[in-house]
Design a protein around this nucleic acid. Structure first.
Lengths: 182, 182
DNA sequence: CTCAAAATAGAGCGTATACTCAAAAACAAG
DNA sequence: CTTGTTTTTGAGTATACGCTCTATTTTGAG
């Protein structure tokens, strides 16, 4: 058995627990004791692996932000439809991370400035990638495709927002409608 | 001086304080002592006027949800443009309440079930009102205008979302673009 | 098996929170 | 002014939080 494996395993258990709690009960509900109980770990072990409770939480949130951007290798090749599908799949397939992502964005809690910038940066990256795809397919001007991408992504975020409120909302169908209505 | 006036005034001060704090520091930061300090009220007075801290917070949140729906008298008359303008004005003019509204929607914190239903109900009311306006102007079918309204509102929510992240984002201009792109 | 390093356990600490309550103060009608 | 009511005060309580620390157990290479 590799040497530092047990520690890494409990670290994973802690992050799993934190991720689960963040999505279900939000930032408030994600208390240390809740994390510990779910991860079956005692506080001493926790503080051998993380400097603070916030470190565990920020680790999970960063992971959520990164997860919004799929297939980083396919930049410059994918179609608009593929990008929209990828977004919907992310939202519905990983509602846990999706919720955390949107919660972080709306902010209020977790007043970490750098986190907000990170979300903005990711948002802009997704806009320009979408704009590229639009430009490749429709050969519109750069400014126009940028605007179109911005509006499309706003629509998708709005749909995600609605879906989080209402599980029965058919986000995939509405995303297709959104694409068709362009 | 009217009899129960002083009590009502401190009640207002408390709600003002709560509203301000909810928007600036979020739900977490809105502690009792923060509310008390800002309202210049001691805990005893607070608990003469509210049963709990949550009661004050929920009062403010309900107010925020209701504020999303402007001019309830103009139902059946307003144009799509007017409704979109009203939405943008609400968001930019009352960012405090807007932020609380979106935070409530994304949820996580404040696990009040009835609150989520309230947000959904309001959302649906706005969709159908928007759909009516669309129908009046374009004479499309009921189903089609309903869908169009849903997508338009999703777009607006997405833009609001972006604006909350980034103050410099020109939500009014983008909302106009969104209208123009239909 | 031995033993040093790694990992866990869990009692305990300081602090902040929401909330209570008895007493004092402010107030307005008679 | 007197009096009963409303309002405010602020010390005090119980609880939950994040976190520390030492003792104990587990681990795995030699």
């Amino acid at each position: 058995m590799a040497r530092y494996l047990p520690g890494l395993q409990t670290r994973d258990r802690i992050l799993d627990s934190t991720r689960w709690l963040l999505a279900r009960v939000g930032l408030d509900g994600t208390t240390l004791s809740a994390i510990l109980e779910r991860a079956k770990v005692r506080s001493g072990s926790f503080y051998n692996l993380f400097d603070s409770k916030d470190e565990a939480i920020l680790t999970v949130i960063r992971e959520a932000i990164n997860a919004v951007d799929p297939h980083p290798d396919g930049v410059g090749k994918d179609t608009v439809e593929e990008l929209v599908d990828a977004y919907v799949e992310f939202i519905t397939g990983q509602p846990t991370l999706a919720k955390i992502y949107l919660q972080t964005a709306v902010g209020g809690a977790m007043t970490d400035e750098t986190l907000a910038h990170r979300v903005i940066a990711h948002h802009e990256a997704r806009v320009s990638r979408l704009a590229d795809a639009i430009r490749r397919q429709t050969r519109t001007s750069k400014a126009k495709s940028q605007l179109e991408a911005e509006l499309l992504l706003a629509g998708l975020n709005g749909l995600a927002f609605h879906w989080l409120l209402d599980d029965d909302f058919d986000i995939a169908a509405r995303a297709r409608d959104l694409l068709a209505s362009r």
